[in-house]
Amino acid sequence: MRVEYINPFVESAYNVLQEVLSVEITRGELYLKSTSMPVLGVAAIIGLAGDVEGRVLFDMSKVTAIQIASAMLQSMEMEPIEELNDMGKATITELANMITGQAVTKLHNLGFKFDLTPPAIFTGDNMEIADTGVEALIVPMELPFGKIEINVAIRERN
C-alpha cells in the first residue's frame, strides 16, 4: 500500500475514536497481511473507488461493538444498548463512516482523490475475509472496551 495512505488512516482513526468516546486509546504495531484472516464478529466495511480500488474494514468483537455503541449513544444522552440492535449497528456504521471520511478528506488535501461507498455491516461467528491480490494494512487500536482492528486494503489503479 502506498506509504502516503498510511498516516491519514492511522491519524483519523485515533482522532475520531478519542473524540467520540473520550477514552484512552493505544495504537498497536502496524503490520501487513495478505492471506485470508478471521473477522472478530462485527465488521463494518466501506469501499473505496477513484484513483484507487480497495476497502476499509473495521473489525471488532460483538461485546466491544455493544460497548462502543453504548458509549457513543450515552455521550449523546441516549439510552445504552444491551444487544447489537439496529441502533447499535447504525452507530458502529456511523463510526466507520466518520473515520474513513476524515481519512479521505486528509488524502484529498494531499492530492489523492477517492470516492467512498456507503458503509455496510456484517455480523456473525467464525467469519473470515479473503481478498486475493490485495495486501491489507492492519492498524490495531486498543480501547478500554476491547480491540478494534482497522484493515485497510488499497490498490493503485494501473
Partner: peptide, 15 residues
Amino acid sequence: ILFEYHDVTHTNAVP
C-alpha cells in the same frame, strides 16, 4: 516513484 509499504512475499500488484 511510488513508495509502498509492502511485503514482496505477498501478492505483488505491479504491472
